[in-house]
Simulated scan of single mutants.
Amino acid sequence: MRISELSRHSGVPIPTIKYYLRDGLLPPGRATAANQADYDEGHLRRLRLIRALIGVRGLSVSATREVLAAVDERQDDLHLLLGTVLGALPADRDAADDDDAADAADDDANAAAPDLTDVEALTARMGWKVSSRTPAAQVVAETLETLRVLGVEFDWRSLLPYAELADRTAELDLDQLRDAGGPLQQAERAVLLAVLLEPALLALRRLAQEHHSAQRYGG
């Protein structure tokens, strides 16, 4: 297909496609003339993934390049590929501003690492096999620590019912990838579901809270 068709099928403007080609995010097409090239379905799939990473997930171009490099290496291992595009592995680092990145690294070095004891107990009870490096574990640990500092008695046992709901939600997420096609399509679908569904899931929780509040406390 010509670049105009690639633009039409992907929804990405031609100038943006040319930028991705110049920057190496998108491989060159097959040259047919001095200033013309043909593109195939592989280009379309990769372009859709780039659009999902930059336009939906909000990664910088440099971070997207790093993720795409990891994707190219991990297409035979869907678990690692999904971990990469969803940010569970270190390949997801936004290097848009080197100064900010350096400052953040200094802050991280000076800050005490969160205590993961509760998280480890929770994942063990759930039977989850997760990386100790995943940022999600640190988020849970930091949240529990904040609750304790504020005087709220909330530990990993309190999270168990929520973890069970999250487990079922994760199964539903991965069920959506069954008919997505090859690894690149599955990676794109995973990004779209993970990023775009999260606000809707939170909104559903708010709706349910409103309903049950009315049921319990409404006049």
Rank of each mutant, 00 (worst) to 15 (best):
V130S: 05
A52T: 00
R178W: 07
D106C: 02
A187Q: 00
K129D: 07
A91V: 14
R51D: 14
Y39A: 03
A96G: 10
R2C: 06
D115S: 04
D107I: 14
H212S: 10
L174D: 03
A52M: 07
D99N: 09
E73S: 10
R216A: 14
F154N: 02
V61C: 03
G127S: 00
A121R: 15
A33P: 07
R46D: 09
Q186W: 01
A101F: 10
D72F: 02
L192P: 07
T143K: 04
R22T: 04
D92E: 12
L6W: 07
G182V: 05
T123N: 07
S158V: 10
V119E: 10
D179C: 01
A33G: 13
E66D: 15
L89H: 14
A136N: 03
A31N: 09
L78Y: 02
I14E: 15
G127Q: 05
A105D: 11
S213M: 05
D115L: 03
L122Q: 05
S158Q: 11
L86N: 06
L201P: 09
Q36A: 12
L78A: 06
W128M: 01
L204P: 06
Y162F: 15
P114L: 04
A52N: 04
R125A: 12
E142S: 08
E164L: 11
R46W: 05
R46L: 00
L25C: 07
T32D: 13
T143I: 08
A187V: 01
L44Y: 00
Q36W: 08
R93W: 06
Q176D: 12
L26R: 11
W128G: 02
D175Q: 14
A112G: 13
P28G: 10
D115P: 00
R205W: 01
Q176V: 14
A95H: 15
G87R: 07
D99W: 11
A170G: 13
D167F: 11
H43I: 01
N35H: 12
A112E: 15
V61I: 14
D167Q: 15
A112P: 09
A124H: 07
L21F: 08
R8Y: 08
T117P: 13
R178N: 10
A137P: 03
R48N: 11
G55P: 06
D99G: 03
L192I: 10
V61H: 04
A111H: 11
E188N: 02
V139T: 07
Q185L: 05
L53S: 04
A105H: 08
R45L: 08
D94A: 10
D98V: 11
Q209G: 00
A109T: 09
Y162W: 14
L165R: 11
G87V: 08
L196M: 02
G182S: 01
R8N: 12
K129A: 05
V85P: 05
T117Y: 09
L86M: 09
R45G: 00
A208K: 09
A124F: 05
E142M: 08
V152H: 13
V56Y: 02
G42T: 11
P13A: 12
A104Y: 01
A214H: 13
